[in-house]
Design a protein around this nucleic acid. Structure first.
Lengths: 131, 131
DNA sequence: TTGACGCATGCCGTTATGGGTATATGTTTG
DNA sequence: CAAACATATACCCATAACGGCATGCGTCAA
């Protein structure tokens, strides 16, 4: 008997996969920024961002699916609010590269270079000596 | 006489548009992570990530185009290294939401709520960020 | 109840993504 | 110089993202 395997091509990770993808879209970042000031209805966002209503709704849907926004019904309106939690993963990942542009870490870099040059263990969680 | 206008549909911001998009792809994040340990040749990445060589080269190209990696020729090999600078924009943007998940900011939040309740300007969005 | 309003969805069209495989280009080595 | 090696590109394919437009559906108003 034939065995069917479901193969998946994947053109690009879905925007609803994670915060990384959801936030890759500039308009969605704008929406979050607008929402940063507090709850807003879809119509408010439409006006603020100058986008078409369906587009806003769709972006909101994506943000909803990755948990970046929460909704609340209010009569015939729907009030959205930000939920930053999912951004934590993004923040954590990016932060690991912070030393590459932040001069505050120059000293740490020097120390790390020193260690690696001498074949020492590249330290995990850094223990800043002075600070 | 007909007037031809070039219209552009746009399915999604190109991955080469900015760091946000480049980094939305998990494999590319893996590449950067691997490169975080120091310069690596394409072949090294192929081995480390278990991806096909063409795929790695393509991802590296994207990373190159947004400036997230630099290349250096070494005989018949090409050594790539990370350049975190473009990640700064990502970090800066995400950081503005840090208080939403970091309890360390609870006090700040309280103060802000206080302000907004009294009709003061919320610090909110500062995001033109045209990209 | 009938509209008007507010928002979500459906469908269409264009575009580009990302993987796979084959091949072109450039560099060593024999 | 030819063969082996390292990497970049070219194509093809399936997928889905996004915008535009039309429409469905629940809610409030006259």
């Amino acid at each position: 008997m034939p065995l069917w395997v479901y193969v998946w091509s994947m053109a690009r990770a879905a925007t609803t996969t994670d915060a990384f993808n959801a936030v890759a879209e500039p308009r969605r970042r704008e929406i979050l920024d607008a929402l940063a000031g507090g709850e807003l209805a879809v119509g408010d966002l439409v006006e603020l961002l100058g986008l078409a209503q369906p587009q806003v709704s769709k972006h909101l849907r994506v943000l909803r699916e990755v948990g970046l926004v929460d909704v609340r019904d209010d009569g015939r309106r729907r009030l959205y609010r930000v939920n930053g939690a999912p951004l934590r993963a993004v923040h954590d990942w990016v932060s690991r590269y912070e030393h590459l542009w932040n001069e505050r870490f120059d000293l740490v870099d020097a120390v790390l270079d020193e260690l690696t040059d001498t074949g020492a263990e590249p330290p995990g969680p850094t223990t800043p000596e002075g600070d």
